[in-house]
Every structure is written in structure tokens, then in C-alpha cells.
């Protein structure tokens, strides 16, 4: 266990070296937040209630989902496919390390950094914009509500890791990743709550793991799920997490057999 914490620490130091990259990344994230904020503020200019949200609730959704996004979706595992293809995976394979844990703890360092910055930026934006937003109210099962966050983080980690494993079979991993990224942008619920979409479409999406990454956790924190809904949803998130965990284990076993440790 200690080895992975040390790894996280060193990953953190390493991340700080690339300051410009990080700053630009944060700038872009803040821009996306502003876009969503202004859009919805404008939409509610004429209307009192839309899609089951009042103005303050919608804006609350935008901010909360944005913070959750910085925890759940930030990641270093994007490197994994490249590492496999360059043969540098050998460095990890020849050590008493679990590759799955290795990248997770590197991600933790990244997520912590991003989360800290998000909270800071949010505080700053609140001062400037002074938006009127609803106060989040997770309800009685407050403790249980917190549980959804690590689950969503793990779920996304496994999905992302899976895409990284594609590196065992092809160097062209950027294309599938791009597709995943596009899907996540809209389906996970960061620009708008899924309630905006036609009910039929929502029903289809609820059969995928994506809403459980950002949309559902945000709903919990807004207090819109009700106790049964919350427990049920967390249960489903757990199911998806386990499913992807099993897929990852399977794909890893297959991938290791084809690993050629080549590439320079």
C-alpha cells in the first residue's frame, strides 16, 4: 500500500513540473463552465421552470456537475496505450506492481490536484458572478450520498483503463478515445442535465453506464432522487463498476499474452 502512496506523491510532483499544461487545462475547463452558465442563465431569462428545474436549481446543477467532473473524469491513464506501444510497460511488468493499481494511484494524484483547483476557481467565480443557486441538499442519507463519488470515480477509471488496454492490439488508440470523449461530453451530463432530452432517449441512456458518472451523482447532491432512487442508483453504479472491473481483468489477461515488449 505504501508503495502506491509514494507513487501518487511522485506523480503529483511530476504533474507540477508541467505547470503551463495544467494552467491551460484549467482555463479551458473554466471556459466550459462559463459557457454552460451563461447558456442556462439566458435560457431561463424568459421562463420560470423548464424540464423540471427552476433557474437556481439548474445553475446549481451546472456548478455541482462541474466540480464532480473534475473528480471523476480527470485522468492520467490516457498514457497507458502509449506506454504499451512504446514497450515502456515492461518497466511496470518487471516490478512487483499491479498495473491496475499503478495507474489508479497516479490518477488519484491528478484528481486531487484538479479537485483542489476546481473548488478554488468556483469560490472565485462565485465572488464575481454572484449567481443565485439552490443549496445542495442530499437529504437524510447524507453518508450514503458521499459513497456515490468513489464509485463513479472507479467506474470511469475502469472504462478509461479499458480504452488504454486497446494499446495491446493497435497503436491507433486516439480514434476510439475520441469517440468515447464525444459520447461522454453529452451523455454523462456535464453541459446539461439529461432531463432536457426526450424521455425516450433518456430511457435508452439509462441502460448505459454513462449517466452514473456525473448526472446521477449530481442529482443525489441536488436532492432530486429521493431515498429509494438514491439507493437504487448507487446499486446500479456498483453493478456497472463490477461489470467493467471484470471486463478489464479479462482484457488484461488477453492483452498480456500478446504483449511483445517491443517498440522504441
Amino acid at each position: 500500500m505504501k508503495k502506491y502512496l509514494t507513487l501518487a506523491k511522485i506523480s503529483w510532483s511530476n504533474g507540477l513540473v508541467y505547470r503551463l499544461n495544467f494552467v491551460m487545462w484549467r482555463v479551458r475547463l473554466v471556459l466550459s463552465l462559463m459557457t454552460a452558465y451563461f447558456l442556462w442563465a439566458a435560457v431561463f431569462g424568459q421562463h420560470q421552470e423548464l424540464f423540471g428545474y427552476t433557474r437556481d436549481k439548474m445553475l446549481a446543477y451546472i456548478f455541482i456537475s462541474w466540480v464532480i467532473q473534475s473528480l471523476v473524469l480527470s485522468s492520467r491513464s490516457i498514457d497507458l496505450a502509449g506506454i504499451i506501444n512504446s514497450g515502456d510497460l515492461s518497466n511496470i511488468l518487471t516490478k512487483p506492481l499491479s498495473n491496475l493499481k499503478y495507474w489508479f494511484f497516479r490518477d488519484i494524484a491528478d484528481k486531487t490536484l484538479n479537485l483542489l483547483f476546481s473548488v478554488g476557481e468556483l469560490a472565485f467565480l462565485f465572488l464575481i458572478l454572484r449567481p443565485e443557486i439552490a443549496v445542495p441538499a442530499p437529504g437524510n442519507l447524507g453518508m450514503l450520498a458521499i459513497l456515490v463519488l468513489p464509485l463513479a470515480t472507479l467506474l470511469y477509471y475502469f472504462i478509461n483503463y479499458l480504452f488504454g488496454l486497446l494499446g495491446f492490439w493497435t497503436p491507433q488508440v486516439w480514434a476510439p478515445r475520441f469517440l468515447l470523449f464525444v459520447i461522454l461530453q453529452f451523455v454523462a451530463g456535464s453541459l446539461f442535465p439529461l432531463d432536457v432530452l426526450p424521455v425516450g432517449l433518456q430511457n435508452v441512456l439509462n441502460w448505459t453506464p454513462f449517466p452514473y458518472l456525473i448526472y446521477f451523482p449530481t442529482q443525489i447532491f441536488l436532492g432530486r432522487t429521493g431515498n429509494i432512487g438514491m439507493v437504487g442508483g448507487i446499486g446500479l453504479t456498483l453493478v456497472w463498476t463490477v461489470i467493467f472491473y471484470l471486463i478489464v481483468k479479462l482484457v488484461w489477461k488477453k492483452g498480456i499474452l500478446v504483449y511483445s515488449a517491443e517498440g522504441r
Partner: peptide, 28 residues
């Protein structure tokens, strides 16, 4: 231990000392 001539395991942007400590923990 496996050492491959052209491959690096040291973290490029950090002092070697940091990589040593990491390996110390990894190998307990």
C-alpha cells in the same frame, strides 16, 4: 531485475533520487 539498454525507468522530470525512493517502496 531487468535492465534494457535503451529503456528508461527513471522519471524524466524529477531528480534520480525521487525514482530511487519510489523503487525502494515498490520493492519494500
Amino acid at each position: 531485475s531487468l535492465v534494457m539498454g535503451q529503456k528508461n525507468q527513471l522519471w524524466w522530470d524529477l531528480p534520480a533520487q525521487e525514482s530511487f525512493i519510489l523503487n525502494k517502496e515498490i520493492y519494500e
